[in-house]
Design a protein around this nucleic acid. Structure first.
Ligand SMILES: [Zn+2]
Ligand SMILES: [Zn+2]
Ligand SMILES: [Zn+2]
Ligand SMILES: [Zn+2]
Lengths: 160, 160
DNA sequence: TGGGTTATGTTATCTCATAACGGTCGATGT
DNA sequence: ACATCGACCGTTATGAGATAACATAACCCA
């Protein structure tokens, strides 16, 4: 969020109460199904991401980690983020050095983001990479992952 | 360049001699034409990028800056990189925290990269963002810039 | 209950990037 | 020529982001 406008940060609404509990439960289920362990620190970091209204910096998560204000040690949070990314529960946004919970239902998927420079919102969408994959193949590349981050202004900020 | 294979870093050949001089001269010309100044530190950082065989870390440039081994101060190089990016002479690769000289002739353009996880090469290409721009427009976003970085294996590393 | 594997806690350090401030250079107008 | 202004630079210091290394603890499966 630059100084360009007055809008609130992170247009995406954070989860609370039952919605939050339900989302965490769903993550728990997917971990059981894949024989992965949603341990306490991993669950806590996912909770912080789900509660948030927008992309969270790693050190914001570190600061907010403790239930009573005590911060976590950096490796605790970075390891949890690594796990959450690996399982598709969270994504890193490279151009922000920040993290968001996955907002796309279901398991593995290619992710891409529309990022508002005004309010800081990051909206995940499912991209069509047909053209880029064709270009990569033409160049002889075998693509494993694609990072796509579009910067601009969201509809709310354009209106305001 | 992970540990996956034995290939040399950065498949892109660095410029030397006349080719390097010519590229720097072309940059000089474009600066004159746009009333920008290719000052000594800016020229030096561009030279380092053009000479290199692959993406360069900022602190690699800082270390190599001096003609006789003396490093530059970080702001010197970061300011030069900011200028070079602004004029389209260089690009930052977000997922590597590294910088490359622009390999596309002509002025402003959208950039995208194919990055080999094996040898570290980063090949610039001109992407077709039609599909993603349509998706963004459908979501009400006004897109200003797009970062696209595809990770995978280049043809040389697949063959080896 | 032993042994391999995975995850955590902790300390320290590393990499990456920018704030702040004073001085220099070069263009512009008088 | 000289003042003035803005862009650029050098320098110091610090902030932000991420990981190495190693010891300990939990888990799982014979
Ligand atoms: Zn997702
Ligand atoms: Zn917005
Ligand atoms: Zn380019
Ligand atoms: Zn390669």
């Amino acid at each position: 969020m630059g100084s360009e406008c007055h809008h609130a940060d992170g247009a995406h609404p954070g989860l609370k109460g039952h919605a939050l509990t339900h989302a965490l439960g769903a993550a728990e289920h997917r971990c059981v199904a894949t024989q992965e362990r949603l341990t306490a620190p991993r669950r806590r970091v996912l909770e912080l991401l789900l509660e948030s209204d927008g992309p969270q910096k790693a050190y914001d998560l570190i600061a907010a980690f403790g239930e009573h204000g005590e911060p976590a040690k950096p490796p605790t949070v970075y390891r949890a983020l690594e796990f959450l990314e690996r399982l598709g529960f969270a994504h890193r946004i490279e151009s922000l050095n920040a993290y968001v919970p996955c907002r796309i239902d279901g398991g593995e998927h290619r992710a891409a983001f529309l990022i508002c420079d005004c309010c800081g919102a990051a909206q995940e969408f499912e991209p069509d990479f047909t053209a880029q994959l064709a270009a990569a193949e033409a160049a002889g590349y075998q693509v494993s992952t694609i990072t796509l981050e579009a910067r601009g202004r969201c509809s709310a900020c354009r209106a305001g």
